[in-house]
């Protein structure tokens, strides 16, 4: 009996059906009559297993947001489909939490009310709601700011609230689109540790989009590198750094080796993207 379990577990985990499947997803934008459409995303396949932390790394304009928005259900693919847990994605929903590149807290709601938004929409009873909210307020280190309005918060605090707001809904997968892109380097580093800490404890499936190489390696179990326009997956690199990761890992030899490898991968793309614009 016990043998059976021991034998089946590894076999099961390697053959586990992907949590998220992106099948031949492409996206074009029409660019006016008579002109060739913009190919934002070439047909893309991607399989993400449960509990993975994937970062998508690519130069500006390579279709990272486009891909993420398709997974979120906020945009329709021109071709292909996305499956979450075997079910096709047809529109946005609370099973896919999203943190946006821009600050999208509801400015008329306080921090606590923002975090409670999704729970309210789904009719979670008030008592349960406030328990969840206070748990997430402390997880993202915003105790004492519950009744502040977004206007009164720094960019880092706003994005932490946005992360808490997405997580409070207990989504099956968390999608983050350059959430720390507008933050200064120090804050950005702290935010990475915070998010990674939450992931190490809760093991949510995460897709994190960034154009920062260090950020991509530091948090990921897999880094997906995308090419410049038209966007396409160029490389898929496993990051086998041990967890829990401390910021000091950024100077470890393995980290530096990965950084060098990714720098090479992405440099060619950045050059191409720069020439094109």
């Amino acid at each position: 009996m016990i043998d059976q379990i021991i034998n089946t577990v590894p076999a099961f985990s390697t053959k586990a059906p992907a949590k998220l499947l992106v099948e031949g997803v492409s996206r074009q934008f029409s660019s006016g009559r008579g002109r060739a459409p913009i190919r934002a995303l070439e047909p893309t396949d991607l399989a993400i297993s449960e509990n993975d932390f994937i970062t998508i790394l690519g130069p500006s304009g390579c279709g990272k947001s486009t891909l993420l928005r398709i997974v979120a259900g906020l945009a329709k693919p021109t071709a292909g489909r996305v499956l979450l847990g075997g079910r096709p994605v047809t529109g946005p929903g609370p099973d896919r939490g999203m943190v946006f590149q821009s600050y999208t807290l509801f400015p008329w709601l306080t921090v606590a009310e923002n975090i409670a938004f999704g729970l309210r929409e789904r009719g979670t009873p008030a008592k349960r709601r406030s328990e969840i909210v206070s748990a997430f307020v402390s997880k993202v280190g915003l105790s004492g700011f519950e009744s502040h309005y977004p206007m009164q918060l720094s960019g880092g605090m706003q994005q932490r609230t946005a992360i808490a707001r997405a997580l409070a809904n207990d989504p099956e997968i968390l999608l983050l689109d350059e959430p720390f892109g507008a933050l200064d380097n120090q804050t950005r580093g702290l935010m990475q540790e915070l998010l990674l800490g939450i992931w190490e404890r809760e093991r949510k499936t995460v897709i994190f989009v960034t154009h920062d190489i260090e950020e991509a390696i530091f948090m990921a179990s897999r880094v997906i590198v995308m090419t410049a326009r038209p966007g396409r997956i160029k490389a898929d690199i496993a990051v086998n750094l041990p967890h829990p990761r401390h910021y000091t890992i950024k100077t470890s030899p393995e980290f530096l080796r990965l950084k060098e490898q990714l720098t090479e991968e992405i440099r060619a793309e950045a050059v191409m993207a720069a020439l094109e614009h």
Binding site: A72, G73, L74, G91, P92, G93, P94, R96, G97, M98, F100, S102, T104, F106, F117, G118, R120, E121, R122, R165, A166, N169
Partner: peptide, 20 residues
């Protein structure tokens, strides 16, 4: 983007009108 955020948080059309 606020409307989109509301949808990804599980809001329906009515909720988006009333609460966004």
């Amino acid at each position: 983007d606020l409307v989109e955020a509301a949808y990804t948080l599980g809001a329906r059309d009515r909720g988006v009108v009333q609460r966004v």
